[in-house]
Nucleic acid binder design. Sequence first.
DNA 1: CGGTTCCCTTGTCAAGTGACCAGTAGAGTG
DNA 2: CACTCTACTGGTCACTTGACAAGGGAACCG
Lengths: 200, 200
Amino acid sequence: MSRAEQRDATRQRIVDAAVTAFAEQGFQASSTRDIAARAGVTQGLVTYHFDSKDALWRAAATQIFGQLVGTLPERPRRASKAERHAAARAEIRAYVHFAAAHPEVFHFMVDAGRHDDDRMRWLVETCLEPRFSEITAEGGIGSVASNRALAPHAYYALLGAGSLIFAVAPECRVLTGADPTASAAVERHADFMAQLFVPD
Amino acid sequence: MSRAEQRDATRQRIVDAAVTAFAEQGFQASSTRDIAARAGVTQGLVTYHFDSKDALWRAAATQIFGQLVGTLPERPRRASKAERHAAARAEIRAYVHFAAAHPEVFHFMVDAGRHDDDRMRWLVETCLEPRFSEITAEGGIGSVASNRALAPHAYYALLGAGSLIFAVAPECRVLTGADPTASAAVERHADFMAQLFVPD
DNA sequence: CGGTTCCCTTGTCAAGTGACCAGTAGAGTG
DNA sequence: CACTCTACTGGTCACTTGACAAGGGAACCG
């Protein structure tokens, strides 16, 4: 393997480990040593590739939110009402499937979103702002909101309702006895969410 | 003040500080020294009254979930369909108002629910199990779920949709420019949630 | 009123924490 | 084949962490 490839592969392993660690334990509670151990490298290497824990967190957030954006389906322009409803349902279902496979994105949002600090502002500007504008735009899922003032409420309700069951999967298993990440359960949640937000 | 009163008052100050700290930063990232400082006492006193950080966390969880249970309205028995719908809407609205005033309960749940450890199991057995059984019981909010298998999905969708906007209030302010905890916004969210889960 | 109890403070401990730095080995380059 | 560059290692730094222990001092009780 060439040096550049080696470098990129190592960085990728560290970022992957960081995504998992930050999602599981939050920013503060995750240690660079733990992340290094998950990635199979030494702690010094983490601060070598990513100057600070903060920068590593931004790299991890960029990766997980990038995956989210790449997963969501295109939204048709100038469609009929029925088409817009179908598109909204498809987008909701796609988000539910992503949240089931990657609850990390929810944890990053909740972990950063509760503090008024630099990390939160960076997340909003870099990762959230574009999605929010798109989701609450006319003609999209935002159409569930009968008027403009309800857009933020629909946005947060959608994310919360679609993500929580997967974000607390271990708790859900103990509480309900069933695994929410099982494919049948994910499908059921997607059905439920689509029907809830875009009823017939 | 008598010694017993003094003791109880001090313990209460510590628990209140712990609720805030654990909700803001999670269990791991909260330090007993920070909690002590918030409560205006020394760190040693925290481990004196509550033997361990874990025990303090349980005391904090007991308090915040106790407040939640005490807030929700009674549910009428043997009611008509219209009455059940009205009761479900009232319960949803009550929960939204509580989540706005006390987002801590959501943070405790998410913080503990993502790990399969003792704290999670304790929270499920002590605080969550009773609420879950009641919510998903026949005739309550569970009636939004057309069949029994959807009950867990309705439960988590309800909690997530009702809580998230308040749990990430700082983020919401930056993202939308509006404060979700303003009374008008809380009312709007309650309206939206009631209409979403119990449509006309 | 004298002795006991028990809140509470202060100080200490080992086990982490993120950042930094000198040194190394091996791929890339002339 | 030298030589440089750089990904990477191991060790160290000041600092924070939860728990503990010894002691003080005021409320309590006989």
